[in-house]
Amino acid sequence: MEFLLSILTGLLFAAGVYLLLHRDFAKLVMGIVIIGNATAIFIFVAGRIVRKSAPFLDEQGVAPDTFADPVPQALILTALVIGFGIQAFALLLFKKVYDIPDIEEVDDLKK
């Protein structure tokens, strides 16, 4: 699964950067969102992947034989929520920018 996910992460990054270089606001923010997601998966893959066994202990508090690494999961979980905050902030900022007359695309910010 790491092999597949590595390729997928690369594709996500490529798509994200491509959108980031766009002149359109909406696409730009989409790029930010995709890069955020891609980063999460990047960290996840770097922490190695164990299929279908979540890091939970059984009733007696004993760990199963194999289970996914909880550390990157904990890292990503908070990162995702923070990423959400940042994305929302960016979106609102862009909305505010649009309230200014004469601004229709990213390039107009130069004015």
């Binding site: 929520v81 959400f84 905050g85 929302a88 609102l92 909305k95």
Partner: peptide
């Protein structure tokens, strides 16, 4: 906190 944040972020829209 997260509940509040979701509201703060989405409500103005």
């Amino acid at each position: 906190l997260v509940m509040g944040i979701v509201m703060v972020i989405i409500f103005p829209n």
